[in-house]
Design a protein around this nucleic acid. Sequence first.
DNA 1: ACCTGCGGGACTACCCGTTGCT
DNA 2: AGCAACGGGTAGTCCCGCAGGT
Lengths: 202, 202, 202, 202
Amino acid sequence: MPTSPVTGRRAGGGRDTRERFIEAAADLLQRHGYAATGVAEITASSGAPRGSLYFHFPDGKEQLGAEALELAGARIAAALDAVFDAAPDAATAVRTLVATMGARLQSSDYQLGCPIATTALEQAGTSPRLREATHAAFVRWLEILRVGLQADGRDPAAAEEQALFVLSAIEGALLLARAARSTRPLRVVAQQLATYLAASPA
Amino acid sequence: MPTSPVTGRRAGGGRDTRERFIEAAADLLQRHGYAATGVAEITASSGAPRGSLYFHFPDGKEQLGAEALELAGARIAAALDAVFDAAPDAATAVRTLVATMGARLQSSDYQLGCPIATTALEQAGTSPRLREATHAAFVRWLEILRVGLQADGRDPAAAEEQALFVLSAIEGALLLARAARSTRPLRVVAQQLATYLAASPA
Amino acid sequence: MPTSPVTGRRAGGGRDTRERFIEAAADLLQRHGYAATGVAEITASSGAPRGSLYFHFPDGKEQLGAEALELAGARIAAALDAVFDAAPDAATAVRTLVATMGARLQSSDYQLGCPIATTALEQAGTSPRLREATHAAFVRWLEILRVGLQADGRDPAAAEEQALFVLSAIEGALLLARAARSTRPLRVVAQQLATYLAASPA
Amino acid sequence: MPTSPVTGRRAGGGRDTRERFIEAAADLLQRHGYAATGVAEITASSGAPRGSLYFHFPDGKEQLGAEALELAGARIAAALDAVFDAAPDAATAVRTLVATMGARLQSSDYQLGCPIATTALEQAGTSPRLREATHAAFVRWLEILRVGLQADGRDPAAAEEQALFVLSAIEGALLLARAARSTRPLRVVAQQLATYLAASPA
DNA sequence: ACCTGCGGGACTACCCGTTGCT
DNA sequence: AGCAACGGGTAGTCCCGCAGGT
């Protein structure tokens, strides 16, 4: 009996294969970007056969990339939610967030920064579908930040603008950190943002 | 007699060809990144013959990329110098800078953002040579920002940290702007940075 | 009750699916030939599910192709029968026949010529099974032509040879007509054949 | 000194490679048609390296196919010229022509029929470029036939129509011969055409 | 027992960055 | 300086089979 009594799914088949493709793609997109990631690399990393990719993703690499970005965006969103839920105020949340990202960056030999940014930059002017996927992730994160900042006492308009500022600074810090192979940009930006946020709601 | 009496080089060849390669590479790297830019595309865009590339750049695409990043870095550095020279204070300089970049981004259909960032993200973990080239550009810009902030009244340590913060925020805003196809992230970040800088030296 | 009281098969499944495969294959073989027609194209065009093909046609594409050629051959045979039944003499029959084919060719943007010839040429030296299927269709048509010519007053041997001549000329005209995107080869050949046939029985 | 003192060409390089591609493509197109012929097959058969194909034929397989059809068309044209030059009258020329083709067909195990027809049928509705190449070949042959028939005493209009008739009949006979794996269609059509041509100029 | 979704991997046309030989 | 060569690489499609559900 090859079906799982719990999930009712065939062992190793169906939904699992599709998910494995997306997982593998998300990881590789984060490390090397879209253009530098080959579908052969993705299939090898996922363990799934090459030919199955186009069954699950008829539009090929682009569709897979878009879904991988969606997954990565959702994961960061969940992390953001958790951090803002746990922290007493926005400044603390941002500190915690950046510290977590710095630790992940360092422990991955400066490979795992933002899972969206690389693809966003290289495909912004090339693939509308991928650009939209990256944009959607950013919008989702901004909304979480805005809610967190509003809960911290800002009015809606200010919270929205500060969310944009906070995300920009963190994304830029992740970029500089990878180029420098150092977490210092993250540490400095976290400190600056905390100072800024502590001063702003008055 | 097609050789110059001064340089001994043929008019139109030599240095010009080399420069044309670098110019073309810098432009394409900014638009599409390193991996998505083929040497065929570069040679076609430069107008130079294919086979000449490896005469001028024995290490091939990687060397050409590194030199293109150097050129692009120097150009931004010159622009930074000019902006800080002309502006009455750092907050104004940052506003002017971001406004200029926003205009260039918009008029290029959101293709021309930071000429370094895309390659920095995708090649950080792949090509040490290119990572170093991107890092060098960022360091150069940070130094100009630090000097400008110091001239505006900060002590050296604070100026250095604020330079990192300013560059991070601008880089992040350029990223979000390309993903959103909107200059709003740049406008908001410019405003936030100006507010922050006006408050900080006190 | 979805099963037929006569055949015991479910209505909508079984034979229907099989026929739909054959119909779709026959149409695509005529338009693009065997090699250029993918099984995916056939299944998509038929509306039938992918995996069912190998249930109905265990030998796969080749078997399906052979059956499609058989169907197409039978349809032309029926048309030939009808034309020779209705026409007062062989010359008139050939004129009518060629006129009909020319109309079909033109109205299909020069796609629907002989449903057998393309596959016959490309698979003659590759697939014995398909070659035999094309040969069988031609033999069947030749027999109808022979009977029609004999009924028009030729002796059996002459009728057989003239049938071969008539079919050759028509097939060649269909080929030239598709290449030229013009019905002129068909019109000229019809005229020449009619002249020839009118003169031959004497 | 690697250049030949006779041809002045580099051994194995340049024009030769290009020609070898075209030769190999022409042969394979005649045997299997366009769709069933892979570029890998062509390069293997030509002995030339795979990567060089797209240097010589930037438009890839389609361009190579078109040039191969052109070569094949020119060769048949030359053969037609020779046959009509040598024969005392058109009927004899047609007999000789068909006999030669029958011999070639048989000695090649019924693989080498018309080098154009297979591609003409399968690509007529798919590739305008290839359709035009096949059409051009037919037009060229028709012109030679027309001149030959006119030299034999027909008026221009009749000669043009009879050329179309003759070519159609021969093409059709080659098709039926390959399907039947027999030269009989060719022999019968040659006899019928000779009779027809002998009767027509009067 | 009749189907069929999904898996499977070889193969497609095409293009990559690179380098001899001229 | 540069044309032609070079072969391993790209994404994508091929036809087919099998395991499991209806």
